[in-house]
Amino acid sequence: MTAQIVRPYGDTTGDGRIQVSFTLPVPFRTRDEQARAEGAALQLAGKMGLDPAMVVHAKGMGPDFTFFIVYGRVSHLVDLSEVKVAKREFELLSPAEINLQIRSSLGRKLVVVGATIGTDAHTVGIDAILNVKGHAGEKGLEYYREIKVVNLGSQVEIPNLVARAFAEQADAVLVSQVVTQRDAHLKNTSELAAAFREAGPDRPLLVIGGPRFDPAMTSELGVDKIFGRGTTPRDVASYLVHAIAPARAGTAA
């Protein structure tokens, strides 16, 4: 059984040895500068709790910076019983898992209609999520074989978006809102939710994204999910699968 209290492992149980690398904005040219730079690195290592610490590598980068690799021993203990695992409401899946789950659970492509609405001409957010090119090293939803993406672009009128969503039999509508003057993003979103409410009971999932949204405001705004800053296409795809094509418990995938 794993011990409840552990320390980093170098080559012996309990030795607490770790390695870190970092850069300090200090020069490393003359002997004096080199000595001072290494001293600075040791000071930082000490404050980080490395005791003893050893600078095994220091290299000047240009006239103003020095790169260090430091080994040291930490005395900190890790109490495994206190480790808290933040639980997502949905599991983060790989593109292959997402495609597989849509195929096995829906048996058809998952249809997503995306747009920016109102006066908002900024398609940065919606394009980062939808375009194949993607964002932050992740391909956009167009890359997923089992997701059909209809990107309506910018400044789409809400009635047009509603009509198009029903015409495409969309499973989800993705709307991004970047412009926030006079809380335009909140007003637009509420109007969007109202328009879909009026259009009928069987509305698609409403997913909103933008840098100034509070993800906790879903019920207030009448939408199903709000994504904030730093959202990647895989986050969105994983959520869509969770909400629309959940794995059927007990049945073979």
Binding site: S21, M61, F67
Partner: peptide
């Protein structure tokens, strides 16, 4: 550090 962050000064140097 491709795919982790925009390169650190040290990443580029290495």
């Amino acid at each position: 550090t491709e795919g982790i962050h925009t390169p650190f000064l040290s990443d580029r140097d290495l």
